[in-house]
Design a protein around this nucleic acid. Sequence first.
DNA 1: CTGAAAGCGCTTACAG
DNA 2: CTGAAAGCGCTTACAG
Lengths: 332, 332
Amino acid sequence: MVVKIRDVAAAAGVSVGTASRVLSGHPATSESSRRRVTEAASALGYRLNAQARSLRKPHADTLGLLVSDIRNPFFADIAQSAERQALAAGLATLLGNANESTEQQDHYLDLLYSHRVAGMIVAPQGDGGGSLGELLALGVPIVFVDRTIDGVDVPSVTSDNGAGVAAAVSHLADLGHRRVGIVAGPPQTSTGRERLDAYRAAVAECGLDSDPELVATGDFQADSGARGAAALLDLPDAPTAILAADSLMTFGVLDVLRERGIAVGRDLSVIGYDDVAAYRWLRPALTVITHDPARMGSLAVDIILDILAGRPASSVVLESALVVRESTGPAA
Amino acid sequence: MVVKIRDVAAAAGVSVGTASRVLSGHPATSESSRRRVTEAASALGYRLNAQARSLRKPHADTLGLLVSDIRNPFFADIAQSAERQALAAGLATLLGNANESTEQQDHYLDLLYSHRVAGMIVAPQGDGGGSLGELLALGVPIVFVDRTIDGVDVPSVTSDNGAGVAAAVSHLADLGHRRVGIVAGPPQTSTGRERLDAYRAAVAECGLDSDPELVATGDFQADSGARGAAALLDLPDAPTAILAADSLMTFGVLDVLRERGIAVGRDLSVIGYDDVAAYRWLRPALTVITHDPARMGSLAVDIILDILAGRPASSVVLESALVVRESTGPAA
DNA sequence: CTGAAAGCGCTTACAG
DNA sequence: CTGAAAGCGCTTACAG
C-alpha cells in the first residue's frame, strides 16, 4: 500500500538503482531519467523511507540534542537555534530532556545512539563515565553546549562564566557591598562550579567577606533559589547583595524577597543570570549576567557539521557580560 | 568495529535468531540462551541499531511532535509533558518547530513521516491540505493538540476556549467596562478564531460595545501584541480593558502600557492568556484565562497510544477558566 | 549513464 | 525452544 522506490522505478520504466540515483540527487543520471522518475514519484506520492536509507549509510540524517531542562528558557533558546541550524543542513533534531539527571541523560544518550544520529549536542552532566564515555569511545561526534566535563576532551561551546561573575562581584564591591551571597549551581555541573569559583576568586580579589556561609547551593531550579535566598537572609549577618547562578534560581530568589517585603535594589541588591525574555517585565529591572544561548546552539551545530565533514573542530568560548539595570544599588 | 547482533550470537554460541529473540524479550527463549546472550551482549557492549529494527517493523519507536513555537512557554510545557509520557511508553520524541508557518509545518510533517514515526502530535495550521492531508490519507496516527482544523476529522486535545473568554468578558462587564478591546490570534488557527468568536458572542451577550475597531489581530508573537495594543489605545474612543489571546501577545500588550505610563488595573484593565510561569513575577498580578498545557501533552500521547493499540480514540476538551488577580478593576 | 546484485542489521514466519 | 532463511527499502560498488 505504501509506495516504495521499486514502484517508482517501475512506473518510470527504469531500474531501482536509477530511480535511487535520481531521487537522491546523484549526478550520474540522464535528463530523461530524471524527468521520468521525478514525475512518477510525485504522481505516486512517493515518500522516502529514511530508516532504510540510513541503514545503508554510516548514520541517519538526524541530530541528537540533549538539554537539561527544556522548560528552562535558556535551553529552549539553545534548542530553537540548534534545531533551525540543523534543519538548514538537512538534519532533523531528536530532542531529549535529561531533566538534570545523569541517569536520564544516559538513557537518552543510548536512545540517540541506537537511532544512529549523525551527531549529538549535549549539555552534559556527571563525570564522563557511563554511556557518555562509551559513546565517546565509539567515536560518536559529540559536542558539549553550555557545560563541559573535566578531563573529557570534546569540542564545546560555552560561555566565559568567569568574566561575567567577576564583573558582577566587582560591580557590587564598587557599590560598597562587603557581604555578597551567592546561590550557586549544582557542583555536578561545570557551570555550577565555574561560577562559584569565579565568585570566590572575585570576592578575594575585591577584598570582600569570604565567609563560607555566604554560599548557598541550588540545583538550577526555582525552588532551590528560594531556599538558598531564605538561608542567606536568615544568616545572623545576612548579605547585602545576592547573586544567583541561573535564571530559574533567580526567580526563586526574587520570590523570597517579595514575600519578605524586601525592596530589591534598595534593601538588597540582586544580580540574576541568563538574560531570558521573562526578565523583561521585572520591576525594578534586573541587573544580570548575560550570554548568548541562540549563538551557542547554532555554533554547536556548526561544530558537528565540521566534524562530519572532516574539518578540524575547535571549541569556542563565548563572551559573558554584566548588564547593569536597577536591581543593584549602594549597600544599605 | 561496531558490535552487531551477529557478533553477540557468535560469542554466545547461538544463532542470530535466538540472539534477537533474547534481546527483544521474545518469550520463546531458554534460560540458558537468555543468560549467555545477555552476558555476551554486555561483554561486547552491544547496542541495538534502531534503524534496522524499525525497517522490519511497521514503524519506528519514535513519536513526532510538531509545535508552533518551542520558545513559547505554553508549547514548551506541552513538549515537556508529551516527551515524558512518550518516553514512559518507550517512544523517543522527534521534535519539530513549525514556527507558525504552514510551509515549515509541511516540511516537518514530511520529515517525520520519512522517519516512520509511530504517531504524530501536532499543533496544526492551515486548511488540512498539503502534507497534512496526504499523511492523514495514508492513515498515519495523528492527534492535534491545542488547535484543530475545521473539517479534518482527527482526535484532538484542546481547551474550551469559549468558556474562558466568556468568563473574562463577563468579568469585565461586571466591573462596568463597556468597551473591551481584544488582541486576537491569527485567523489561520482554530484557537485564534475560537477565542475571537467567543469574545464577540460574549460582548453581544453582555450588551457591550461591539465596535469592530475594538478587534486587533496579532500572530501570537509579542510584537504583534504590542502593535495591537497601540492600535487599540490610539482609537478616538479607546477601550477601557484589553484581552490578549496568548501569553506572548499579552507581554507585548504590557510593554506598550508600560511605555505609555498607563497603570494596569487602574487606568486600564488587562486580561492575559495562558497562565505561564513568567507571569508569576508581574505586578500588578495578572488576571488570566488559564488552561493546562502539561495535561494536553500527556493526553495527546495517550491518544496516540490508544490508536496504536487499536483502542478507540476520542478527542478531549479540557477546561479553561478565568483567574482573577489584580490587573482588572472597575472601568475608569 | 544504467542495470543487476549485494548488502546494511535486524526480525520473524517456517520447520523441526 | 532453536536455526536457517527470507526480507524490510534502500544505496552503491561493479560492469558494461
